[in-house]
């Protein structure tokens, strides 16, 4: 696993795209195979509002894990609303059998809304990692974090707000170095609606660029 963003922990306060990115303490993030969290599990939690596509993001990371020879279990929870309710995608990755399929102490949290950040930030294990949209303010928790303009990049760079979930996927993989880029791209091709592959791959690249610019 590449440990490619060593040395970026000192970029706090570095002015980058619009000066709103904020990456803190990510220098010691390793690949999944290294960090197996509690009980040999690596738990990823993708939280947002119904319609933002966080469940699809969780599916894509589960698929990438399978493609990478790991075991994965993906589930979700949401309310009875079709749009707008609180929405959570949960992906467990492990080298061994995964029995309990829900997050217990997530190693990683993506939060795209205020509500989801407030709800799940406290569950992230000490030393875990939170990626939040830069519009959000992080509560005081003992974790590493990055705040990146995910929703804005989807609107302005990809020119489609629906791609925010894939922008986030690109950023997550750049931050955590979970899978080779090609693996994540294949996982995206398998799960996005037919005909949207190109825009989604552009969104993935936009997400990678957010991290690259913030770390530059």
């Amino acid at each position: 696993m590449i440990n490619g963003i060593n040395g970026v922990s000192d970029i706090n306060g570095v002015s980058d795209i619009n000066g709103i990115s904020d990456i803190n303490g990510i220098s010691d993030i390793n690949g999944v195979s290294d960090i197996n969290g509690i009980n040999g599990r690596y738990e990823l939690c993708f939280a947002g509002s119904g319609g933002q596509g966080v469940i699809l993001t969780s599916i894509i990371f589960a698929e990438a894990a399978l493609l990478n020879g790991k075991k994965a279990a993906q589930s979700q929870s949401y309310g009875p609303e079709a749009r707008g309710g609180s929405c959570l995608g949960e992906t467990i990755i492990s080298n061994g059998n995964i029995w309990f399929t829900k997050i217990t102490r997530p190693d990683f949290l993506l939060a795209l809304t205020r509500q989801s950040l407030d709800q799940y930030a406290g569950q992230v294990r000490p030393g875990g990692f939170i990626l939040a949209d830069s519009e959000l303010t992080l509560p005081a928790v003992d974790v590493k974090y990055a705040r990146l303009p995910i929703l804005r990049a989807a609107c302005q760079d990809v020119k489609n707000p629906m791609t925010a979930n894939i922008v986030a996927a690109g950023a997550i993989n750049s931050l955590l170095r979970l899978f080779p880029d090609k693996t994540l791209e294949e996982a995206i091709r398998r799960h996005v609606p037919a005909g949207t592959e190109q825009i989604n791959l552009r969104a993935l690249e936009a997400g990678r660029q957010l991290v690259a610019k913030a770390a530059a």
Binding site: A62, K71, A72, A73, Q74, S75, Q76, I98, T101
Partner: peptide
Amino acid sequence: EIVGHLREG
């Protein structure tokens, strides 16, 4: 719902 909505290999 646990198994119905679960995804795994």
